[in-house]
Design a protein around this nucleic acid. Structure first.
Length: 287
DNA sequence: AAGAGGCCCTGATAGC
DNA sequence: TGCTATCAGGGCCTCT
């Protein structure tokens, strides 16, 4: 599901609902996610007051008042669901409204935060939760990552220095989180279309104008996706069950065989495999 | 050292 | 209907 825009949508709605509240209960039904959830995880979260919900790249960061934190990665299929406590029962028991969007299977983690219950669902179990004791540990975790597209560090000098003379193709560069953080397969395809760059082009064949476009359109596409509430393919929703709409504006992703949307271009959208990921591009205007 | 590919896992869909 | 094969928004690990 989630690239940077989708994770940002989740972050925003999660922050609005749990900011300033205290964790009352943690229940883990299945510890066997991408990495096994640590033995003392429940204890580490219990009674922690939430300062804010942050995000870096495709990672959610629940920051606590004592500067400890919980990193959440949603993998390919992770979703977070939010349920509010029933008003009428608030003093009598802990029953919550049932969310119509809560799947029946694969609900692995339940966290009660005062009048809110959040539930982590993940069929493929590629996601994970990690607790970090302090800011130093948290920062160390993201040390190896490249800048987000929005960062001032993702600039012409940086891109030029990293791509020039490299054999690796530009599609794999955009997916390489050590080069730039937060772009996944959908947005990599859409960004390259806007840049008019063929995904198989190697870094060393690109010029300064290509680098400028890569920076500009990475920012533009991700920003636009965030404004549109992310992309809903398969069943992505924000934690309140609302769908995104950026998928309606896909220019190449999932458009194999269709006409290029650019006026004056007679091209057709092609689909090829690059490092086992689908790549969609116009065979004429992406050179 | 850089880069390609396998693999972790379940579910949806297509084809027979 | 039911089988099998293929593919999916990520990224870590291993091998060359």
């Amino acid at each position: 599901m989630p690239e940077l825009p989708e994770v940002e949508i989740v972050r925003k709605s999660l922050d609005q609902n749990i900011n300033g509240k205290t964790i009352k209960k943690v229940l883990i039904k299945n510890r066997n996610l991408r990495f096994e959830i640590a033995k003392h995880f429940e204890k580490q979260l219990l009674k922690k007051k939430i300062l804010k919900v942050d995000r870096f790249s495709k990672y959610l960061i629940i920051l606590f008042e004592d500067k400890s934190s919980c990193i959440i990665h949603l993998g390919m299929s992770g979703t977070i669901h939010l349920i509010k406590k029933k008003e009428s029962n608030i003093f009598t028991n802990t029953s919550f409204y049932h969310s119509p969007y809560l799947p029946k299977k694969h609900n692995h983690i339940f966290i009660e935060i005062e009048d809110i219950k959040i539930i982590y669902n993940d069929p493929r179990r590629f996601g994970y939760f990690i607790f970090k004791k302090n800011l130093k540990e948290l920062n160390n975790y993201f040390n190896k990552f490249g800048p987000e597209p929005f960062s001032k560090n993702f600039n012409l000098v940086y891109v030029s220095r990293n791509l020039s003379k490299k054999e690796k193709n530009i599609k794999n560069f955009l997916l390489d989180q050590n080069f730039v953080s937060g772009i996944g397969n959908i947005y990599a395809n859409e960004i390259l279309f806007q840049c008019k760059i063929n995904p198989v082009r190697s870094g060393k064949t690109l010029n300064q104008n290509d680098f400028k476009n890569l920076i500009f359109f990475s920012r533009k596409i991700l920003n636009k996706a965030i404004i549109k509430g992310g992309s809903t393919i398969r069943d992505f929703r924000n934690i309140s069950g609302k769908q995104g709409s950026f998928q309606k504006t896909f220019k190449v992703y999932m458009r194999e065989g269709k006409n290029c949307i650019n006026k004056n271009c007679n091209g057709t959208i092609k689909k090829i495999n690059i490092s086992n990921r689908s790549s969609f591009f116009c065979n004429i205007c992406q050179k």
